[in-house]
Amino acid sequence: MTITNQDELDGLKDIGRIVANTMQSMARAMEPGMTTRELDQIGRALLEREGAVSAPQSTYDFPAATCISVNEEIAHGIPGDKVIAPGDLVNIDVSASKNGYFADTGATYRTAPVRPSLDRLCRDGRRAMQIGIAQVGSGRPLAGIGRAIGRFAAGRGYTLIRNLASHGVGRALHEYPEEIPTWPSRSEKRRIDKGLVLTVEPFLSAGGLWAVEGDDGWTLYSQPSAPVVQYEHTVVATDRGAITVTLPG
């Protein structure tokens, strides 16, 4: 989607606020002993209360309202009977629509006690996303996002999952430009149009390179096996940089 007027931006900010509030409420409610299904039910209720519709369900018939991925699961985890335990890495990804506008956000949380290496990975994962967002602006190269994130990751001794990309969003969950690399890519030649709505969502890892699909047809795992974190915002490109719309409020 390309934003052309204030009404469109306001509609996008509204659903952005809803998914951000939902994700943060889920994270606050999360505790050891809870199943991922119970956590998803909290998210479903919050979306319904706001008049929003789960985007994975409406777009892909995903079998839950949100994606919750624990430890070795790195994305698209199906909420179910898995019990959240102390020390777990839990990724919560919330995307939804309202009044024809879609927004997408995600973050990786951890339950105490947390190993220092995983705590550092989470902090650096959020920083990698912020570095990518700083490259978003009218007329700037899309490849700049992945180049900047790649420099940061390499400098800190991390790898990036190279087949889970950022994407356009706004009038659909995934739209043009559908594959925006969050790793260095010499083949990416496109530029960012003014008003373009996109996600920035690097998958930072301590050794993983690829995402591979599990037996359930949804859940993705790291190959080689390694801890992975993901942080994601939906942003709008402007002449002054990026407007982040997935902010709580």
Results as ranks from 00 to 15, higher is better:
residue 181 P to E: 02
residue 26 M to N: 04
residue 42 I to D: 01
residue 170 G to I: 08
residue 158 Y to N: 06
residue 128 A to E: 05
residue 54 S to R: 04
residue 9 L to Q: 04
residue 53 V to M: 11
residue 198 L to H: 02
residue 70 V to A: 05
residue 242 A to S: 13
residue 96 A to T: 06
residue 175 E to K: 06
residue 39 L to G: 00
residue 53 V to E: 09
residue 19 V to D: 00
residue 89 L to A: 04
residue 165 A to S: 07
residue 28 R to H: 13
residue 19 V to Q: 00
residue 77 G to Y: 02
residue 134 A to Q: 14
residue 223 Q to A: 15
residue 165 A to W: 02
residue 125 G to W: 05
residue 111 T to M: 12
residue 133 I to V: 15
residue 53 V to P: 02
residue 59 T to A: 13
residue 147 R to H: 15
residue 90 V to I: 13
residue 82 K to G: 01
residue 59 T to C: 06
residue 238 T to R: 08
residue 228 V to Y: 00
residue 95 S to I: 01
residue 33 G to S: 12
residue 114 V to G: 12
residue 196 L to R: 05
residue 202 P to G: 08
residue 77 G to K: 07
residue 149 I to F: 03
residue 47 L to A: 07
residue 180 I to H: 01
residue 226 A to V: 08
residue 247 L to C: 08
residue 94 V to K: 03
residue 116 P to E: 11
residue 16 G to V: 04
residue 93 D to W: 05
residue 16 G to T: 04
residue 167 H to E: 04
residue 9 L to K: 03
residue 70 V to L: 09
residue 190 R to E: 10
residue 93 D to F: 03
residue 22 T to Q: 04
residue 241 G to W: 03
residue 228 V to A: 00
residue 210 W to D: 03
residue 58 S to F: 12
residue 113 P to Y: 11
residue 198 L to D: 00
residue 231 Y to L: 11
residue 179 E to H: 07
residue 85 A to P: 07
residue 239 D to Y: 13
residue 233 H to M: 14
residue 101 Y to F: 15
residue 113 P to A: 08
residue 141 P to Q: 09
residue 172 A to W: 13
residue 181 P to V: 06
residue 222 S to R: 01
residue 241 G to L: 06
residue 178 E to Y: 14
residue 203 F to T: 09
residue 1 M to L: 14
residue 185 S to L: 05
residue 192 I to L: 00
residue 223 Q to M: 14
residue 134 A to D: 15
residue 6 Q to G: 07
residue 150 G to H: 02
residue 11 G to Y: 07
residue 180 I to W: 00
residue 168 G to V: 00
residue 179 E to F: 11
residue 66 T to Y: 01
residue 195 G to N: 06
residue 71 N to K: 13
residue 135 Q to V: 07
residue 156 R to P: 13
residue 145 I to N: 03
residue 155 G to M: 15
residue 51 G to W: 12
residue 165 A to Y: 03
residue 30 M to L: 14
residue 191 R to L: 10
residue 176 Y to W: 13
residue 36 T to L: 02
residue 16 G to L: 02
residue 208 G to T: 10
residue 51 G to Y: 12
residue 44 R to T: 07
residue 31 E to M: 14
residue 97 S to C: 15
residue 67 C to T: 10
residue 59 T to Q: 05
residue 198 L to V: 08
residue 214 G to I: 00
residue 3 I to M: 07
residue 17 R to P: 05
